[in-house]
Amino acid sequence: MRLHVVGNVCVDTSFRLPRLPRPGETLNATSTVEGIGGKGANQAVAAARSGADVCFWAPLGDDDMADRVTEMLKSDLDVDRLIRLPLPTDRSTILLEEGGENAIVSAVVCARAFDPIQQTNLTEIWSKDDILLMQGNLPWEVIATCLKLAKRSDLKTVLNPSPLSDTNVEDLADVDVVIVNRGEACALTGLESPAAAADLLFDRGARSVVVTLGSEGSLVWDQADDAPFVLEAHRSAAVDTSGAGDCFAGTFVGLLAQGKTLAAAAKVATKAAAISVARLGTLSSYPSRAEFSEIIKISELENTWLGQ
């Protein structure tokens, strides 16, 4: 079973600050780091390191930066499905305060011009029982079309509708699993309670819903179950929270692609995200393949002890 991650990739520049600047204020950074980012790339790398067979579909520009991104991704992913567009490669600037909170500004012209149905052979490569994972960086019309065609081809579909810019989740008939954080769940449904928000997402067509709750863990709910499974978070000192949600989503779906249950996948994803927030950077903070192997092994032993 292959996992097709369709999304974006960009160059992240992170500025570490004692605090986030106020309007009109200039602050000097204590350090600066440049690396690969983008929700699509983040989730694809996390899934690949967890052991999944990942096909990553994303656009790059026609500049030197695109060459650097391609070279840097080679250690984790097959880069043959990255396409070039006559545009600048997408970029993000991350302002990271000492306490771990962040503010992000992105330039996403490549992502907004990307149409994988028209510009790639995605629909010729995917096959029945594969999984499609998408985020909210592409235009909603493109996302909706990919999800609809994937369901017609009998793929399992997963949507992490972040960022929420123009994402429309009124109709989720083509979505098997929705992954959102607490704030997104509230924004999409108007409901404060994560369980009530998940219930409304079921009404809109989703088959399973995962709501991540930060330091409070996550809520995992399949429509066939009477009540959600609430998973406690793993405690860790937050150093850099950027990309933690992508680490969770990519790991979670990567494990689904390896035949794990929703609950088992969420347990490992929670551990992986806890590791990532305790380290600086985005992809550089994610567990390595060796670390993932150990996390999965320990999780499986715990499930055996608990009789799960």
Rank of each mutant, 00 (worst) to 15 (best):
V6W: 04
W140K: 02
D174M: 12
M1R: 04
L159M: 04
A44L: 11
S208Q: 10
M1G: 02
E291W: 02
V230T: 07
G243E: 07
T261K: 06
A107K: 11
G99Q: 10
D203P: 00
G51V: 08
L219C: 06
V178K: 00
W57Y: 14
T304R: 14
I125F: 08
V253C: 14
G37N: 03
A144G: 02
L301E: 11
L132K: 10
L17S: 01
V108Y: 09
Q43M: 14
A274W: 10
W140Q: 11
I117Y: 14
D115E: 12
P59M: 12
T251P: 06
L73Y: 04
A249R: 09
V277C: 05
G99H: 12
P21Q: 07
E97W: 10
A103V: 05
H234I: 02
G61K: 08
G190K: 02
A41M: 10
T32H: 07
R91E: 09
A224C: 12
A113M: 11
M134S: 01
D62N: 15
S276I: 02
V180Q: 01
D63I: 07
L85H: 07
D199W: 10
G205I: 00
A263M: 12
L27E: 02
A187D: 11
R91Y: 05
N121I: 06
R112D: 03
D176T: 00
T157L: 15
R19A: 11
W57V: 04
K156G: 00
D67N: 15
W57A: 04
I298P: 03
D174W: 03
S285E: 08
L255C: 07
D67E: 15
C146N: 11
L200Q: 14
L96M: 15
G214T: 08
L147Q: 01
T251W: 11
G24P: 02
I104P: 01
R22N: 13
L60D: 00
Y286V: 01
A274R: 08
V11T: 07
R49Q: 10
G24C: 10
A195E: 15
G243N: 09
K74Q: 15
L213Y: 03
F252R: 12
V211S: 09
A185M: 05
N160Y: 12
G205S: 13
A198T: 00
G7F: 08
V5Q: 13
L201A: 00
D12G: 04
C10E: 04
G307P: 05
S31K: 07
I94T: 02
T241D: 08
D174I: 01
G254M: 08
G217C: 11
G136Q: 10
A237M: 13
G190Q: 07
L255E: 01
R91A: 08
V239D: 03
D130W: 10
T189P: 09
G214P: 05
V239T: 11
D115L: 13
A249S: 15
T70N: 12
A41T: 01
N181M: 06
A237S: 11
A47M: 04
P88I: 04
Y286F: 10
Q223M: 12
L85F: 08
E302V: 03
G40K: 09
A150R: 03
L77M: 13
T251Y: 06
P88Y: 06
A265H: 05
E25Q: 15
D203L: 13
K271E: 14
S31G: 09
H234T: 09
